[in-house]
Each structure stands twice: as structure tokens, then as C-alpha cells.
């Protein structure tokens, strides 16, 4: 860094003497910049990207009774040759066994339905928050964020006591005389929907609120002045303007919900098929690491389009903010 070239001619010497510490400092700064970039970059390469490549590799090999419980993909044979042992057998297995295809389809269905339900529950809340007097908004925001910080597992667990046959919901409904027989809700798909809507509600409300809060209310006034009724103004002005919030909220609910494990496991029944649960069983109960890897690869392929769309949207809004 400090070795600057000697001045070529005496005439330029004073100028070069002024410049060289400046050049050296810029060099150091550049090095510092790349160092700052390198640390988190290498971390994510090692702990986020590399693991995926390993999953891909293991999805191509066979299960084996050993530790680690899978065969080698590449072996070194004599004379510097390498032998490749990969096969798509695990993927064919997923295709042949209807359990897996049904799990994928049912996960997508459950996630899509719950995303719509979460939007329907979340939109009025976000709308009410955005219209509330300014001095309440901080408190309302805190009230939405607080459950998001509270343990996911605990919030799901809380619903078991409410939804089960002799649970609080049936107790309340029987007392009110609304039902004579207790309803079976726990261990059905309905319980899974309730669980997902409840757990992911803040993910929907927060982007919606951030969007609705910024909306220019004079547009609604203009619509009203032109004779537009409030309900129509909501559909033709408010909803289209809040589209970025709606899209962000839906992605934030849909993508993780597809691979959800805790909710279908604790609230769903034995016939509730979700791919996260199938992967878990394949890994922990059947101990078939190659097949679980293949399940993960396909799940990622299913989700790659929504994930890329979500990232694009996040980047765009981050750039718009800057």
C-alpha cells in the first residue's frame, strides 16, 4: 500500500508527493470495504448456499445403514479416475408414492386458503389502524407486533386448550346454548386454518398497515366529490393503491405456510397432509436422509417462483424507499 512509484521527473515530484498518501488511503479504504463485504458474504455462502448444494447431492444417493446414513456420490478409484454413483431413484420414488404428491398439493391448497383467510381477517385490522388517530397508532402497532415476538409454539399450543373436544370453545358454546353436542375441531383441517391465520396474522397486518398509512386520503375525498360511494371508493381507490401491501403480506404468509410443520403437527389430524410434516416424518421416523433431501429439493422448486417474486418486490420497495 505504502509503496508508491518514485517520481519520474522532478517537475511532477511535488504533485506526486501530495497524491501518494491519498492514493494509499483510498487503497486501504477499498480493502476495508471488501473486508466488510467478505465477512457476511462468506458466512452466508458457507451456512446458507453450501448446505443446499449438499442437500442436492444427498438427494441423488442411496440410503445406507451407517453413519452418515447415505452412500457416496463420488468415489476415487485408481489411476486418478472418479466414479459417479448418482441416480434419480429418490425422485422417482416421490413420483410413484401418492403420499408425496398429495402432500405437496394439499400443502399448497391449505397455504393458499389460509393466505386468503388471513388477508380477509388482516385487512380490516390494518385499515382500522391506519385510520385511527395518530396518537393511538404507536400503541396499536405495538399490540400487533407483540404476539409476533411471542413464541410461535406457545401460540399454537394455546389453541389446543381452546379447540379440543372438552376445550374452552365447546364449553362456551354449550353454555350459550348454541350447540348441544361438542364440535370436533381439533385434529381437523379447520384447526390448521385457524392456527395459520392466527400465527401469521402480524405478517399480513404489518405490510398492509405500512402501505395504508401512507395513502393520500385526498384521493378518497376526490372520489366522494365526484359522487363515488364509500364502498365503491374502497374497491376502486383504496384496494388498488394498497396492492403492494397485499402482495407482500400474501407472500409472507403463503411461502412459510407451505412448509409449515408445527401447526399441522399439533393442530391437524392424522389425515392432514402437509409436506413439512411428511419431510419431518421421513427424516426423524424413517431416518431416510436421501428421500428427505429429495422432498426438500422439490419443495424448494415449488417455492422458488414465489420466493424470487417476493425478493424482487422487496428489492424494488427497498430501492423506492432509498
Amino acid at each position: 500500500m505504502s509503496s508508491s512509484p518514485p517520481p519520474a521527473a522532478p517537475a511532477t515530484a511535488p504533485q506526486a508527493a501530495v497524491e501518494s498518501p491519498e492514493v494509499a488511503r483510498q487503497g486501504t479504504q477499498k480493502l476495508l470495504k471488501y473486508l466488510v463485504i467478505a465477512v457476511p458474504y462468506l458466512w452466508l455462502l458457507a451456512f446458507f448456499l453450501a448446505p443446499f448444494l449438499i442437500v442436492l447431492k444427498i438427494s441423488l444417493v442411496e440410503v445406507r445403514v451407517a453413519m452418515p446414513p447415505y452412500s457416496e456420490l463420488i468415489t476415487f478409484v485408481e489411476d486418478g479416475w472418479i466414479a459417479f454413483h448418482g441416480s434419480l431413484e429418490n425422485y422417482l420414488w416421490l413420483w410413484d408414492d401418492p403420499l408425496y404428491i398429495n402432500s405437496y398439493l394439499s400443502s399448497l391448497k391449505i397455504a393458499a386458503t389460509s393466505t386468503v383467510l388471513t388477508l380477509l381477517v388482516g385487512y380490516p385490522i390494518a385499515y382500522g389502524m391506519a385510520r385511527a388517530p395518530r396518537r393511538w397508532r404507536f400503541a396499536l402497532l405495538m399490540l400487533v407486533i407483540l404476539p409476533f415476538w411471542t413464541s410461535f409454539l406457545i401460540r399454537v399450543y394455546a389453541w389446543i386448550g381452546i379447540l379440543k373436544k372438552e376445550g374452552l370453545l365447546n364449553l362456551a358454546l354449550t353454555h350459550l346454548g348454541l350447540i348441544s353436542e361438542p364440535l370436533t375441531i381439533l385434529n381437523t383441517d379447520i384447526a390448521v386454518y385457524i392456527g395459520i391465520v392466527y400465527s401469521y396474522l402480524p405478517f399480513m397486518v404489518l405490510p398492509l398497515y405500512a402501505n395504508l398509512e401512507k395513502m393520500d386520503l385526498s384521493l378518497l375525498e376526490a372520489a366522494a366529490d365526484l359522487g363515488c360511494r364509500p364502498i365503491k371508493a374502497f374497491w376502486v381507490v383504496t384496494v388498488p393503491l394498497s396492492m403492494t401491501g397485499i402482495v407482500a403480506g400474501c407472500f409472507l404468509v403463503f411461502i412459510p405456510a407451505v412448509g409449515e410443520f408445527v401447526i399441522p403437527d399439533l393442530l391437524g389430524g392424522s389425515e392432514t397432509l402437509m409436506i413439512g410434516k411428511t419431510l419431518w416424518t421421513e427424516f426423524f421416523n424413517n431416518r431416510d436422509w436421501p428421500v428427505s433431501s429429495a422432498v426438500a429439493v422439490i419443495l424448494l422448486l415449488v417455492l422458488i417462483i414465489p420466493i424470487v417474486l417476493f425478493q424482487r418486490q422487496q428489492q424494488r420497495s427497498a430501492e423506492a424507499e432509498a
Binding site: 412448509g259 409449515e260 419431518w280 424448494l300 428489492q315
Partner: peptide
């Protein structure tokens, strides 16, 4: 790599 883990299913 920053945004993907936010929505990546935990099982993966």
C-alpha cells in the same frame, strides 16, 4: 441470500 431465509420453510 439475505431475503430468502426470511421466507424459507424451516424444515428445509
Amino acid at each position: 441470500m439475505i431475503y430468502a431465509p426470511l421466507v424459507m420453510p424451516e424444515v428445509i
